[in-house]
Simulated scan of single mutants.
Amino acid sequence: MRLYGVTGWKNSGKTHLVERLVAEITRRGISVSTVKHAHHAADLDQPGRDSYRHREAGAQEVLVASPIRWALLHELRGAPEPPLGDLLARLSPVDLVLIEGYKREAHPKIETHRAGTGHPLLARANPTIRAVASDTSPEGSEVPVLDLNDTAAIADFVLAEVGL
């Protein structure tokens, strides 16, 4: 599986870009999975649901299955967060995995940047960032700057980077 990341400051457009890239790249016939890193205690389950009740009772893992999808919830229960590589090993094979977040990991990335956030470019200090997708032309970028709203051009860049 080939990996490519989307990173950036909060509210810079990471999730929106990943969503658009998934749609564009799958439209081209390439299979895609995603990994999203959350810095907070993300809970995908709802209080009162059977699966939630199973976890609250102490289950280490709860697998929920239906005719249209399945999901495996794994409780860390105080154990450290697993490394990205361990999580990737759990994915089914696809052509490309888009990774949102994980800015300190070694895989190549594109940085989302919005002038209105007032944050500096991460690319200046992070050699794994290969391009910036921005709503402006940030000064001092040593990597290519792409239009944040040009999904097709960003997809072309990512696919060329990973050889697809």
Rank of each mutant, 00 (worst) to 15 (best):
H40S: 14
S92T: 09
V64Y: 00
T117H: 06
D45Y: 04
K36Y: 07
L72V: 04
P80D: 08
D156C: 00
E81V: 14
P138M: 08
D95Y: 01
P83L: 12
H40N: 12
R104F: 11
A155H: 01
H113M: 03
A38S: 15
R114F: 02
G78Q: 12
G85W: 05
D95K: 03
R55T: 07
G85D: 15
S31G: 06
H107V: 00
V132N: 02
I154C: 05
E105C: 02
E75L: 03
V143I: 14
V35E: 08
Y52H: 14
R49A: 09
E142C: 06
R49D: 12
N126V: 01
A125V: 13
R104D: 13
Q46R: 13
A106H: 10
A133M: 13
A59S: 10
T151C: 00
A123M: 03
D86R: 13
A42N: 12
P47M: 03
A153S: 08
R114T: 05
E100I: 05
I129T: 04
R90G: 13
A41F: 10
K36W: 03
P83N: 10
R55H: 07
G116V: 05
D95W: 00
V32S: 06
G118A: 12
F157L: 06
R124C: 05
N149H: 14
L84R: 07
G48P: 15
A106F: 06
K109I: 06
R53K: 15
V32W: 01
P120I: 01
V64I: 15
V62P: 04
I129E: 12
A41P: 07
D156L: 00
I110R: 02
E56R: 14
R130Q: 15
P83R: 11
V132W: 09
V35S: 09
T128H: 15
L148I: 14
V132T: 11
L63Q: 08
P47C: 01
L84N: 08
V62Y: 00
A59F: 04
V32Y: 01
A59Q: 02
S51W: 02
T128P: 08
Q46C: 04
H37G: 08
E61H: 11
L122W: 11
G85S: 14
N126S: 03
D147V: 05
L146E: 04
N126M: 12
P144G: 07
A79M: 08
T34D: 11
F157I: 00
S31T: 13
A106D: 02
A41W: 00
P127G: 04
S137F: 11
K36T: 07
P108I: 04
H37F: 14
R90H: 06
S134W: 04
H119C: 06
P80M: 07
L121F: 00
A115D: 13
S66I: 07
G118H: 03
P67C: 05
S92C: 02
V35R: 10
P80Y: 06
A155M: 00
E75H: 10
R53S: 05
D50A: 11
K103Q: 06
R69F: 08
A155C: 01
D50I: 11
S92H: 02
D43I: 11
P144Y: 02
R104I: 03
L72E: 06
L84G: 11
L87S: 10
V145Q: 01
P108F: 10
Q46K: 14
P127M: 09
T112M: 03
T136Y: 13
T112A: 05
V132D: 09
